[in-house]
Simulated scan of single mutants.
Amino acid sequence: MSFADGSSTVADAVIGADGVHSTVKDLVFGESEANFTGRIAYRTTFPTQLLGGYEIDECTKWWGPDRHIVIYYVKPDRSEVYFVTSQPEPEFTVESWSAKGDMDTLRAAFEGFHPQVQHTLKTCPDVHKWALVDRDPLERWSDRTVTLLGDACLR
């Protein structure tokens, strides 16, 4: 087995848990195109102190008719807050971990949600945004000594 950095190794078995764009899946079962879902995710982590003393629940998910947001502390000392959303935005098809999202657009998308959502989005300084993709499931996930896990199991 060879890696992108030029190193290699010998293994008795391989588990490919490398996501929806799985290189292991492509090598074993062939390449396929991802399906854009018409949904996007906004995601970020920011210092809790920006909440200005406002308390949020340990981990809560708020649902709307066509969107949701999950907010929680990510460190034991509660010094950072994380959130991720899922909502429709079919015209956005960029798959990127670094594309910036517009905070005003995000805030408008969750207008009328719980006060914790409103306050978290109001105090959040910036956010990343990317298109959500999926694939049809594979008929099988293993071939001899190679098996796939998670999103890698999608065609």
Rank of each mutant, 00 (worst) to 15 (best):
M1A: 07
S2Y: 13
F3L: 08
F3T: 03
D5P: 11
D5Y: 10
S7H: 08
S7D: 14
S8W: 14
S8I: 08
T9K: 06
T9E: 12
D12M: 00
V14I: 15
G16Y: 04
A17H: 00
A17K: 00
S22C: 10
S22E: 09
S22D: 10
T23S: 09
K25N: 05
D26H: 08
G30E: 02
G30Q: 05
S32F: 13
S32Y: 06
A34I: 03
N35V: 08
F36R: 01
T37P: 05
G38Y: 14
R39I: 05
A41W: 03
A41L: 06
R43A: 11
T44S: 08
T45M: 12
T48H: 04
Q49P: 00
Q49Y: 13
L50M: 04
L50R: 09
L50H: 02
L50S: 01
G53T: 04
Y54F: 10
I56K: 01
D57N: 06
E58H: 15
C59D: 09
K61I: 10
W63I: 03
W63G: 08
P65W: 02
D66N: 14
D66G: 03
D66M: 01
R67Q: 10
I69D: 10
I69Y: 09
Y73I: 04
Y73R: 04
Y73D: 02
V74M: 15
P76L: 11
P76Y: 06
P76I: 07
D77G: 03
V81P: 09
Y82W: 11
V84T: 12
T85S: 13
T85Q: 12
Q87W: 03
P90I: 02
P90G: 09
V94H: 15
E95S: 12
E95C: 12
E95H: 11
W97S: 14
W97D: 12
W97T: 13
A99L: 00
A99C: 01
M103E: 01
D104T: 15
T105N: 12
L106E: 04
R107C: 11
R107Q: 14
R107H: 09
R107E: 09
A108C: 12
E111Q: 13
F113D: 05
H114M: 11
Q118E: 09
Q118R: 12
H119S: 00
T120K: 00
D126W: 02
H128D: 02
W130D: 12
L132D: 07
L132E: 01
V133A: 06
D134Q: 09
D136M: 02
D136G: 00
W141S: 05
S142C: 13
S142F: 06
S142K: 10
A152Q: 06
C153V: 01
L154D: 07
R155D: 14
R155Q: 09
